[in-house]
Amino acid sequence: MALRATPVPDNAPNKITVKELDFFYGDFHALTDITVDIKEKAVTAFIGPSGCGKSTFLRCFNRMNDLIPGARAEGLVSLDGQDIFETGVDPVDLRRRIGMIFQQPNPFPMSIYDNVAFGPRLQGVSKKAELDEIVQHSLERANLWKEVKDILGRGGLTLSGGQQQRLCIARVLAVEPEVMLMDEPCSAIDPTSVQKIEDLMAELKDRITIIIVTHNMQQAARVSDFTAFFLQEVAGDPAILVEYDRTSNLFTSPKDRRTEDYITGRFG
């Protein structure tokens, strides 16, 4: 397994800071006391058994949880030093800066072109030439351009699952986000597309901060610079962040017994 050749320096700035975050779905306490710094222009992986709140945590960063009735966060999450839960922060603006890729590819029922142009159009870009350029550039960055350049007018849903996922990535890249949240982006797609997505992540992290939730520990080890391990120790109790470290450290010499159990259990 090839670990990253050029490590992110220790003094890299923090893009996102989380302090003592607790999260609730109504009466259900899903996460407790999460404190973590997400480094800028790095790939951070969230791992842990299913149901331990990785998606929940991810959705805090772009306040997608606001859409869930009864959901509530306590604590601090800041982006570039600005508290995102502050009343002055518009979640709509926040989501332009923090894009999200979901486990299930979710292209809109419209053409490939219109899918990618959707975000820029929301922001008022309407010139054909400008949109053309954004669409091409975004599809290139998403490693999809070569496959779709002659069929841009075709429905996004006619593509294969893996192509659809890359289309969704292109759609997010078209709004030039600073952070990209990826919630198990590879769990429902073909291996060729997985490879292409891992490649594009390596290229993108020069410019954007990526957080990826993954079930696949080899993938976490391949693509990420930092890894956070979450665990819900007792059913019904809130989940905690067990260990957070450079990926190379966490996978080779975990400090916590529970981390070691988890990664060895799954690696065997």
């Binding site: 772009n62 997608m64 859409l67 709509v92 603006d93 926040l94 989501r95 332009r96 894009g99 999200m100 979901f102 299930q104 979710n106 292209p107 809109f108 029922p109 959707f118 975000g119 929301l122 922001q123 969704c168 759609r171 997010v172 709004v175």
Partner: peptide, 10 residues
């Protein structure tokens, strides 16, 4: 999840 895609783009 189609709606989420849209909200996610701001």
């Amino acid at each position: 999840y189609i709606r989420w895609g849209s909200y996610g783009l701001g």
